[in-house]
Every structure is written in C-alpha cells, then in structure tokens.
Design a protein around this nucleic acid. Structure first.
Length: 304
DNA sequence: AAACCGATCAACCGCTTTGGA
DNA sequence: TTCCAAAGCGGTTGATCGGTT
C-alpha cells in the first residue's frame, strides 16, 4: 500500500542534474515563471519529477543564490536564529539573502551542529545547572523533557517582514487586524536596538508599513504580513506550559535563561494569540529584559 | 599507488500545510 | 465543512571528493 508517489516515476531521470537539464529548466522558468511544478516537467520537456524541478530551482538555479562559503557573520546569525527558531531552515534562510534552507541545514549538520554539541557538553561539565545558552540541535520529533533546555514553539511559520520594537508609551488598544495577505513579501525590515531606544526612529518603520503594527508598552511585537502569525515576546512570561496543549507545543515551551531575563522562541500560534488578545493588558516590566536580549541579537547583526 | 575514511552537499522521500472546489 | 491536489518543508541518503594511512 503506502503513499502514492508525487508523480509517475517511470521513465524519469533521477540523481544529479545535467547541464542541459539545468538549462532547460532555467529557460522555462525564465519564460513562464515559477509555479505549477507538477506540470512543469512535461511542459518544459524534462524527464524529471516536478518536485525535483522545484528543488533544483530553489536550491541551485535561482539567480539570487549566493555561492561561496558561509561567512563568519552569517554563521553567527545562523546560530542565533537556530537558537530562536530551531530546525526551521526555510525561516532561517529567509534571514540570509541568497542562502537556501538546504544549504543552511547542511551547514548546520556538518559544522555548527557539532560545535553546538561540543559547546553544550562542555558547558554541562562546567555546571549542570548553568543557565547559559547552550545551543542544542533540535528536532521536532524529540520533545524536550525539561524547561531548562532550549525549547522551540512550533508554529505556522510565516516570513516576518516587519519588526517593531517600541519602548514608547503605547496607544491604549491594539489596532484592528487587516485581512491577511499572501502576496510575495518584500525584504524584511528589522528595527535595530538603536532605533529601539529612539522612538522617533522607531516610528519611521510605520511609514512603510502595509501590514499591522502592535504596541503594548515594552512588549515586543514582530508584526507580520499575515496577521495569524506574529511574534509576541512580551506575553510569554505569563504563559505557562500547561496553557499549551501538546500538539501545539511540539518541542515545547520557552527558554527563560538569557541575560537574566527570558529568551523566547520566535513564533506564535492561534491558541496563544487568543489568550494574548483576551488578556488585553500590558506586560510586566521584566519584558524589558527580553528587549535587551533581542536588542543584543538585532544589534549584533546586519539584518538583511 | 591504492585503500580507507570522513566530510560535504545535492537530491530524494515522505509528512504537513495550504488553498481551492 | 470536507476532500483532494499541489506546494512546502525537514530529515535522510548516497555520490563524490579530499585527506590520511
């Protein structure tokens, strides 16, 4: 029995792509654009599975793919993003222009994963109760047993295109949510911690805003094009693991160990959102600690 | 020079999510 | 609301390459 194949595999080429196949695929996509992968091979005259074409395009042929070694800065960014997002390679890749999820995944598995493993083991030798940020390889199929370890909230992932960090006195209520949009997203804009400390600069980001922004005191909200997915750091202090059902919380929880404050996994899901809306009040002052943590992250990188 | 071994990375597999009928 | 096809995603595999013995 089993699952039916994504396409008939009879007579299809497999394995490494030839230069000719690449050429055909590139020419076809150049002429007709991306999408409709299932029919693409037939139309383009390729003896390949549509999935294979898509993968080849996304991971290799796309003109904006950056070649060459991962730089030190990129590596640092990958580590930080992995710490926040876990193994969501496509999201991480979204923060690294020209890099693909596959590339980052491979890089992590061959380089950073080992480093991280070594780090965490040496740290555990130093102090089993250490609260430092041990980077751990995370898999969605291995739920963590302890809230002390790095934990990842699994969410419906959406590329976040705006980050608003406002320390300003907020308007008393949130703005209404516009309908979600699924249009191609422009490059993300992230507000640096410099801007965070300067409300006048912080406000600048609103001017280019075509999606929702949210203010709630020191609460940090990453406003996304898709209203169903924004990252809310400020409220995580108030959410207990019990509030979250097992399905929603796959690798579970949030890591409260950074810089004496809390470190939150990026991502939010509907249940939490609903709780968040229902609370409708501003978070405690300790959210500023989260801001500092995030500010450190944002400030230390050149965000694309 | 040959055999072995580990590292790398492109490609595949199968599960999940999304969107339309 | 349900179902199904398509697309997206992360884990895994296997071919290839370079270094070592």
């Amino acid at each position: 029995m089993g699952r039916s194949p994504c396409c008939s595999k009879e007579g299809l080429n497999r394995g490494a792509w030839t230069a000719l196949e690449d050429k055909i695929l590139m020419a076809y996509i150049k002429a007709h654009g991306e999408g409709n992968w299932r029919n693409l091979p037939e139309r383009a005259g390729l003896k390949r599975c549509g999935k294979s074409c898509r993968l080849r395009w996304l991971n290799y042929l796309r003109p904006d793919i950056k070649r060459g070694n991962i730089s030190h800065d990129e590596e640092e960014l990958i580590i930080k993003l992995h710490n926040l997002l876990g193994n969501r390679w496509s999201l991480i890749a979204g923060r690294l222009p020209g890099r693909t999820g596959n590339e980052i995944k491979n890089y992590w598995n061959t380089n950073l994963g080992k480093k991280a493993k070594g780090q965490s083991s040496s740290q555990s030798k130093q102090s089993s109760q250490s609260k430092s940020r041990a980077i751990k390889p995370l898999t969605s199929t291995q739920p963590s047993k302890s809230t002390q370890t790095t934990q990842v909230i699994r969410t419906k992932a959406t590329v976040c295109t705006k980050v608003l960090l406002s320390l300003q006195s907020p308007p008393p209520t949130r703005t209404a949510l516009p309908p979600p949009t699924r249009t191609p997203l422009p490059p993300p804009e992230i507000l640096s911690s410099t801007a965070m400390n300067d409300p006048s600069q912080a406000s600048l980001i609103n001017h280019q805003q075509d999606g929702p922004n949210f203010y709630c005191g020191t609460e940090v909200v990453l406003a996304c094009h898709d209203d169903s997915d924004f990252f809310n750091f400020g409220k995580w202090n108030e959410i207990q693991p019990n509030d979250i059902d097992g399905d929603t919380l796959m690798t579970s929880g949030c890591n409260r160990n950074l810089s004496g404050g809390s470190e939150y996994s990026l991502g939010l899901f509907d249940d939490l959102m609903q709780k968040d809306w229902a609370l409708n009040h501003c978070p405690e002052d300790n959210a500023t600690l989260d801001l500092e943590s995030l500010a450190h992250l944002l400030d230390s990188e050149e965000w694309p």
